[in-house]
Design a protein around this nucleic acid. Structure first.
Lengths: 257, 257
DNA sequence: CGCGTTTTTGAACGCCGTCAAATAATGTGG
DNA sequence: CCACATTATTTGACGGCGTTCAAAAACGCG
């Protein structure tokens, strides 16, 4: 089905099919997320097999990679940027069911039709694979399949915890919990050495997107943030930055009605 | 904090490993769910390997197999009965994050601590496996691992759709959708030949359990059911039976605020 | 029949959504 | 760099949906 591309071509950009594949292969060498993505489980030779399928693709903020309801044609690895996975009702109500960060796997393997839309919240880069060939690679590479299983299990756990939040927690619990989650992610992205002190970070989401994640409205999110500010638990230095000035209190509020 | 679980003492446990394994192995031969459970992917020889680990276990209605927060020691296949998977807040609010039916896989592989409690809603039977050895079997049997991956992906999809429901749908949409879901399950369990006509079935859940699934209260569920009855979409013949007398209208109500 | 449990029904409250408007932030072309 | 347009956020007023609290009715089981 796919030509084996184990040989190198001197000038990468001369010809199309081959050139793209090789370009991707080269990029893997200094891929920012390779160690954290699914392909981290592959050795160089296996990587070639995957690369012969994949194409690197840039996407602008606001662009939608996959539309719910369409044929489910592709999977991907997210290289940079942030994306959202959205479920929606027929009359347009929306819920973000997952945020995707660099090294995350994107898409729904073994699904004929896409159930959710996937849209870029920032400019983003991905390695995109056609779904069916990707599934075949998956089945030929146990370690990758295993890694996907473990990630999927982890994602499922998170989804279930989110159900508890969406169904049973108050607006102030949701917002407080969300800020703590985002702080953890920001910290691990920035790899700050000091886990102490007032942590300032940028939550690159609009109020509307936060609302979509938390199952609230823009107004409620905004009101809760000002409440937290007035209570002295956080500061809002402007833009989309957040300073957590009293994490203990924030953690308490994250699990008290 | 909770009753000890793995101390079931019976005549069989006098002669350990072998007797149990053979007993289980024998039972597999006429296992009601074998073709639908994960072990359906194993041949007889492989089944032996799994069986040497497993123990068949009966559980009474209301008993809890796994407690959230405990060490995550076991996985299982559900043979008969219905169980619930519950997430809860520190102050006791609960949400059912999954219902488990015969042939479903039970537990959280690759997790050190159980995140959710798993409790029997009816008397139930399971094949219980210690988690770590089970994981090893999983890794030695690609087909089973693949099957688990595919199931997990499917479950994740369902979880994400549930997020939409919990976050954005009205009480009447939730109840209508729930009845339709249960009807599908009841129909597939009973394998009715006629997909037409007024379908009567038993939703073996109490109002409280329905409320726990839908993220509502008992009162709200009850009120919505009477509304549906008064609107002529369903009948409540008593007990926990439901008759769907106008499925089209019910489907419309399931996705209209 | 009598008792405990589940379900239904009623009444009042409160959280959050909706609608509306003011203010702040961001971007754009001149 | 500013003036202006656009978008995002904050703030306010109000109402509705679902919860909470309470009690009656129906059911199940000895």
């Amino acid at each position: 089905m796919q030509p084996a591309l184990n040989h190198r071509i001197g000038d990468k950009s001369l010809r199309r099919g081959y050139a793209d594949a090789m370009a991707l292969s080269d990029i893997c060498a200094d891929c920012a997320v390779r160690d954290h993505a699914l392909c981290g489980s592959l050795d160089d030779r296996e990587l070639d097999a995957l690369n012969s399928l994949g194409q690197k693709r840039r996407i602008a903020r606001g662009e939608t990679l996959i539309w719910a309801g369409d044929d489910n044609l592709i999977c991907a690895n997210l290289l940079s940027g942030v994306m959202k996975m959205v479920a929606s009702t027929s009359d347009g109500r929306e819920q973000i069911v997952g945020l995707l960060y660099p090294a995350d796997f994107v898409g729904q393997p073994y699904r004929e039709e896409a159930d959710f839309s996937i849209t870029a919240l920032t400019d983003a880069e991905l390695c995109v694979f056609p779904r069916l060939p990707f599934q075949r690679v998956l089945e030929d590479h146990v370690r990758m399949e295993r890694l996907l299983l473990q990630r999927t299990l982890q994602t499922l756990n998170e989804a279930r915890n989110r159900m508890l939040t969406l169904a049973r927690k108050s607006a102030s619990e949701r917002v407080a919990g969300f800020l703590l989650d985002m702080e953890v992610r920001a910290a691990s992205a920035g790899c700050r050495a000091t886990p102490t002190g007032p942590a300032t970070f940028d939550l690159s989401l609009t109020r509307g997107q936060i609302a979509d994640v938390l199952g609230l409205t823009i107004e409620t999110v905004s009101r809760q943030l000002t409440k937290l500010k007035e209570a002295g638990l956080i500061r809002l230095p402007g833009g989309r930055a957040i300073t957590i000035s009293n994490r203990d209190a924030l953690e308490r509020r994250a699990e008290a009605a």
